[in-house]
Amino acid sequence: MDGYEQGRDAGEPPPAPRTGTAEPPRTGTAEPPRTGSAAPPPRTGIAALSPPYRIAAALALAVVALVACVHLAMIFLHVAPANTVSKQHGEAVDDWVYPEFEQNWKLFAPNPLQQNIAVEARAQFRTEDGGVRHTEWHSLSAQDGAAIDGNLLPSHTDQNQLRRAWDYYTSTHDTQNRPNGMRGELSEEYLRRIAVLRIGREEPARAADGLLRVQVRSVTTNVQPPSWSGEKLDPKPVIRLLPWWNVTSQDMEVRDR
């Protein structure tokens, strides 16, 4: 069969696609084996190339190996604690890693979260007689928790959206609730829109006429250490109250479908 194919290859101009037909010669059937060892495996890979191509392949090898090593080194420096090297070359590491190779594997580390942080929100709305009132506090996190309970496939909307939006807010604001720049402002808007969406879901009638302002707070409760540890933590929740935020017309357009 090989012979037949080779003959065909040699004799005719290539009439049609024949990826495989002419392959055997390349990998060594046609090329006389140059090594003298007994039953040599057919030459493959870089060894099957003629010198100029071999140089090209070697070059490719060098480049690929170099890039891979640099990449892994950068990722390592990115995930490792701040150290001599990463402090010196922090910018280079960030340039390499962000935005596409960013990663965080401190999963429940160094310590798992030991507090339940419930985010709650309420809204101001205009009454029919022209007055201004506000709703009760809605525990948005409790809604999430209820959706997660007994669920084999919790949705990111319940498990991550609010939880991470709150993380994002706290990490981009100081304790006086001042944003640390553009990201801080984004997180504020984001949290506000989540609040508007969720309150609108709970109180569609009041939201229909437009909410005026929303306010968000967090209620942080320690998870009590296990009974056998003998430790006791203050069971009193800590409340962080954010200022009232004006709801914009854009915010009112937030949709979940």
Binding site: I148, L152, V223, P225
Partner: peptide
């Protein structure tokens, strides 16, 4: 005791 805590976080305790 680390494993104990996630089991008591509302966001990670479906059961």
């Amino acid at each position: 005791t680390a494993v104990y805590y996630p089991l008591h976080l509302d966001y990670f305790s479906p059961w």
